[in-house]
Design a protein around this nucleic acid. Sequence first.
DNA 1: AAGGATATGTAATGTCATAACATTCAAGCC
DNA 2: GGCTTGAATGTTATGACATTACATATCCTT
Lengths: 131, 131
Amino acid sequence: MSADLTRNQTLVMKTLSGAEAPLSAYTILDRLRDDGLRAPLQVYRALDKLTEMGLVHRLESLNAFVACAHPNCHQQELIAFAICETCGKVEEFSDEVVKDRLDGWTRAHSFRPAKTTIEIRGNCGGCVGKA
Amino acid sequence: MSADLTRNQTLVMKTLSGAEAPLSAYTILDRLRDDGLRAPLQVYRALDKLTEMGLVHRLESLNAFVACAHPNCHQQELIAFAICETCGKVEEFSDEVVKDRLDGWTRAHSFRPAKTTIEIRGNCGGCVGKA
DNA sequence: AAGGATATGTAATGTCATAACATTCAAGCC
DNA sequence: GGCTTGAATGTTATGACATTACATATCCTT
């Protein structure tokens, strides 16, 4: 079980949970000015902890953050993201076969993986054609 | 066939080709001061073109760039990167099964992919144990 | 030679992230 | 209670990555 969240962690988590799309740290900060947050570090520190706990994911290709779509099972499987460049929405999924293939490669090359990023950018069903 | 490279593109390409590990745009810029480059944009513009041509890849999780390991066949398959966080070296590979699985997901969800990023960060065989 | 597309040069600015240091808060122990 | 210790917080400054806007030059085509 995750320990209870601190005040700043709670604020950041709520902001991300209520967002339709990924948010940058600075956007989160802007939305929390009224709650007393003033400096980027306050947000980055909270994001670090939340990411460690598996409640938040960082999207590397966007330099932004999303709430985990499966917040209850903070599993440590491989997660892939499909990111719509039009509406900004992100779908989160995992695939055992992909995981097995990548594991196979790393084993064969004596590579010890620490963190794997899979991000597909494009247009979601609703946005294809619009863009 | 790729058109011939321009002066700045050539400079940037040579810098990346001669590097052991990915370089940031600003590192490239620093290495090219003596060749007359002065502003980040000169590097970013060259990188954009080189990336379009498939000669250079951007590593999203590093905000850095590498020369393509297969510069002759500028294929457009799915490419994955294994990035050693100790020595910095990057291995580039592709896997048809992974590609098929991700394609399957996108088709099933009517998602039209534009660019896919797969980056495995960890430690390479030579560095495991050292870190 | 003229026009258009591409490449270049330069300054300024915007965006993302962390270092360094001081202070506060909560939990355990004497 | 008073003390220690570790985590979280607050604040300033700075570092690292990337783009906007505008001016100039180069090359190719007609």
